[in-house]
Simulated assay, not measured.
Amino acid sequence: MTKFKFYTIFLISAILVSCGTNPFTGKSTLALVPNSQILPTSFQQYNQVLEESDVIKEGEQAQMIERVGYKIANASERWLAKNGYPDYTENYKWEFSLINDDQVNAWAMPGGKIAFYTGILPIAENEAGVAAIMGHEVAHALANHGQQRMSAAQIQQAAGAVGTIAIGDDQQSQQLFATAFGLGSQLGVMLPFSRKHETEADEIGIKLMAIAGYNPEEAAELWQRMKENSGGGGPPQFLSTHPSNDSRIQNLRSMTEEAKKEAAKFGVTSFE
């Protein structure tokens, strides 16, 4: 067997056998790197970020971040239990930290580690706005988007290696292939993959915030404020890791009624 055939078969086999399931969509997901390896590293990295940051541990804002975070997390666990995944988060260690920093940002790490920067709070504007952001970040953690990005990066690297082997020893051809493959896989696969995750997190997050008792209409309003804060600018969507602001606003508005219907299944019919 040639080296090319070996690596091709290995790559295809790894993709086929290394799949998980997203409980919210029912779709198969890439899982080349198991959570048993990811979570300990995630927890360690999260703690390192906190050690190197100005974490606000007391006061009304810090309390709000924790309150909203646990309400969203509890909503997710209620949904998972109701839909046949009662043990899905058994290895998660939910933690919600407020970091004193002007960045307009919030992020999630695998296993339920969430960070908010104070710079995003004025745009969140109210607790429901914080819940819209929190629902999105919790959704990233629940949908194992970090695991999928790591797996996709490994596949991208392996596919590049297979292509290089197929070309042979011609260095000029290898360089041309590397440039074309890098650009093509980034624009055609990795960036759309990332945008898909963002849209998926919006879809899951808006339902979780509604189940937690927060008005899902606030999600679209939040992104309207985000658009205004950015001046309406940003790169073209096909060059971005995120959908455009207009796309998100439109999608979230179209999801609002479905989120309310989902919340009603849990007895939640009024929202704050």
Score class of each variant (00 low, 15 high):
residue 197 H to R: 07
residue 191 L to W: 01
residue 134 M to I: 04
residue 39 L to C: 04
residue 199 T to F: 15
residue 185 S to G: 01
residue 185 S to W: 14
residue 134 M to G: 10
residue 15 I to A: 12
residue 73 A to T: 10
residue 206 I to V: 12
residue 136 H to M: 00
residue 82 K to A: 15
residue 40 P to L: 03
residue 102 D to F: 12
residue 91 N to F: 11
residue 178 A to G: 02
residue 160 G to R: 01
residue 200 E to R: 07
residue 153 A to W: 08
residue 245 N to D: 10
residue 250 Q to A: 15
residue 17 V to E: 03
residue 211 I to R: 09
residue 233 G to K: 05
residue 163 G to Q: 08
residue 243 P to H: 01
residue 3 K to L: 14
residue 52 E to P: 00
residue 152 A to F: 13
residue 252 L to I: 07
residue 247 S to C: 01
residue 214 Y to T: 02
residue 169 D to T: 12
residue 2 T to I: 04
residue 206 I to G: 07
residue 1 M to Q: 02
residue 113 K to M: 04
residue 174 Q to I: 14
residue 124 A to H: 02
residue 220 A to I: 10
residue 194 S to F: 14
residue 140 H to W: 11
residue 199 T to G: 13
residue 100 N to W: 01
residue 78 R to T: 13
residue 204 I to W: 07
residue 243 P to R: 00
residue 89 T to C: 15
residue 178 A to M: 10
residue 204 I to S: 09
residue 82 K to S: 13
residue 271 F to I: 08
residue 7 Y to F: 15
residue 200 E to T: 11
residue 175 Q to I: 00
residue 80 L to W: 03
residue 135 G to Q: 05
residue 251 N to L: 13
residue 109 M to G: 11
residue 161 A to G: 10
residue 196 K to I: 04
residue 86 P to E: 06
residue 27 K to I: 04
